[in-house]
Amino acid sequence: MRPNDEAQMAEAVATATGAVRITGGGTRPVGNPVTGAVLETGGLSGISLYEPGSLTIVAGAGTPLAEIEAALAADNQRLPFEPMDHRGLLGTGGHPTIGGVVAANVSGPRRVQAGACRDYLIGVRYVDGRGTIVKNGGRVMKNVTGYDLVKLMAGSYGTLGVLTEVAFKVLPNVDCTGVLRINGLSDAEAVRALSMAIGSPFEVTGAAHLPVGPDGHPVTMIRIEGFEASVAYRSEKLRALLQGFGDVECGTDPVTGAKDWAQVRDVAAFHGTDGDVWRLSVKPGDGPQIAARLDGAKVVYDWAGGLIWAEVPQGTDVRARLAGFNGHATIIRASAETKTRLGTFQPEPAALAAITAGLRAQFDPRGILNPGLMA
């Protein structure tokens, strides 16, 4: 089913006789396998409102992310949260959609400074499990009042409703980007350096460590963005702050910088490889110790060590290896059998699971929207 407007989407859900599997651009099959009739959002496409002066954009959920980014770039603006492109990591085709970004709350390296997708989402329209069209939030910041269903929909993976339209606050693009690099640090040293940079007053917008960088050696990267003079000043201050960790290189070449951070954002180190990929959300200072418990797994650190991408042998139960750790372990790439056996998402404590079940019962009383995807 591929509805062409919101009314058709509502009818499709209201008349569904069984489970429906909601898809956008088909680029991110994250979650437990879902069996049901396919319901596509791609027909709900197009930018319905863009006001550069108000820093606001509104679009159908099926609008390609590339279309959104191109429209913003034409007015020197951007989505602040730097959504990643999963296609290389997952080996998928298609095109990412803005509704898929919201449904999975996709946020990239800039989250350490700018925040997540949900922090810039100011309005949604969606169809709940009854087939009812619901609107929450607005098209400008001052209209976000009452129950904040906007934030609830971000990261719900289509289990509470089918997104039909989303509204965002956007920001001006950056004038200049500086990237500081330190070579050869151990994981523990790198996280200490990144934590020091993040804790400084110099507005770091990216903090990552690759134990195996593009040249095969460890590289620690710190990003600063803004006006050219400000970037130069803050880069020198950070260089002095971090000099105890070794030689600190600083570059401002826009092509090199964009390429390096795209590799971090899209986890390029694991493109075309065979292992399962897990996403670990942890306390940054605990990152190296937690990664070490994975016994030789390949890892990439983002968010100053708070986000660990780990590649492990197929079928590995990462949660069992990390029993008792403080954090969340999510399967991003694995076989359907592994996802079914282990569960894609970190199991919730009983009290939280009860709240989650209660919310789903209210939003989707028939249990037809992506059933079992997040179980």
Rank of each mutant, 00 (worst) to 15 (best):
Q8V: 09
A14C: 09
G26W: 00
R28Q: 14
N32Q: 09
T35H: 13
A37V: 13
S45Q: 13
G46V: 10
E51F: 10
S54F: 10
L65V: 05
E67V: 14
Q77N: 09
R78D: 07
F81K: 03
F81M: 08
G88P: 00
G91S: 09
V101T: 15
A103I: 01
P109Q: 06
P109D: 04
R110I: 06
A116M: 14
A116V: 11
R130L: 14
G131H: 02
K135S: 13
N136G: 10
G138M: 05
K142V: 12
N143C: 12
L160W: 01
A167I: 05
L171W: 07
P172Y: 10
L180S: 00
G184F: 03
R192W: 10
S195Q: 13
I198H: 04
H209E: 07
T220A: 07
A232T: 12
R239A: 13
E249F: 14
T252F: 10
A268F: 07
F270P: 01
H271M: 09
W278H: 13
K283V: 15
K283A: 14
K283D: 13
G285S: 14
Q289I: 11
L294A: 07
G296R: 09
G305S: 08
L307P: 00
V318A: 09
R321S: 12
F325Y: 12
H328S: 13
K339I: 02
L342K: 02
T344S: 12
L352I: 15
A361N: 14
L373A: 11
